[in-house]
Amino acid sequence: MFAAPRREVALHLAPELATRWRTSHPRVAEHLEEHIEEECLSCLTFPESHRERIRTTNGLECLNQEIKRRGRGW
């Protein structure tokens, strides 16, 4: 859903995803249903070239790990 090419496609996939997660992750499914447009899919309002960086925290996690690694030597 978060890698969907368009917002409309993601909105179509969201109910199916919530249904699949309802048994194992009920709070996540509930949040997904209640906040799909304003919180969950806000990354789809940006140009496609920016979406991957916006929807993940990998860059931030790498930066924090590098800061910790460099700070150990002091």
Rank of each mutant, 00 (worst) to 15 (best):
M1V: 11
M1S: 08
F2E: 07
A3K: 05
A4I: 00
A4F: 02
A4D: 04
A4E: 01
P5W: 07
P5K: 11
R6F: 13
R6W: 09
R7L: 12
E8R: 11
V9G: 05
V9E: 07
V9D: 09
V9S: 03
A10N: 05
L11Y: 04
L11K: 01
L11P: 01
H12Q: 15
H12G: 08
L13K: 01
L13S: 00
L13Y: 04
A14E: 00
A14R: 06
A14N: 02
P15V: 07
E16H: 12
L17M: 10
L17S: 07
A18K: 02
T19R: 15
T19G: 13
R20M: 11
W21G: 00
W21T: 02
R22S: 12
T23Y: 10
S24V: 09
S24A: 15
S24M: 10
S24D: 14
S24H: 11
H25L: 11
H25Y: 08
H25P: 00
R27T: 13
V28E: 03
A29I: 01
A29G: 01
A29M: 05
H31D: 13
H31E: 11
H31A: 15
H31N: 13
H31M: 14
L32M: 09
E33N: 14
E33M: 12
E33G: 13
H35W: 03
I36P: 03
I36H: 14
E37I: 07
E37F: 03
E38M: 01
E38G: 03
E38C: 02
E38P: 00
E38H: 06
E39S: 10
C40P: 00
C40K: 04
C40E: 02
C43G: 08
C43M: 12
C43I: 09
L44M: 08
T45W: 09
T45V: 13
T45D: 14
F46E: 05
E48S: 04
E48V: 06
E48D: 02
S49N: 08
S49C: 07
H50K: 11
H50C: 15
E52H: 07
R53M: 09
R53N: 12
R53G: 15
R55I: 02
T56V: 13
T57N: 14
T57I: 13
N58S: 14
G59S: 08
G59I: 03
G59P: 01
L60H: 04
L60M: 07
E61F: 07
L63Y: 14
Q65E: 12
Q65V: 08
Q65K: 14
Q65G: 10
E66M: 14
E66S: 14
I67Q: 01
I67M: 05
I67R: 08
K68T: 05
K68D: 06
R69V: 02
R69W: 04
R70Q: 06
R70N: 02
R70E: 05
G71Y: 00
R72M: 09
R72F: 05
G73C: 14
G73T: 12
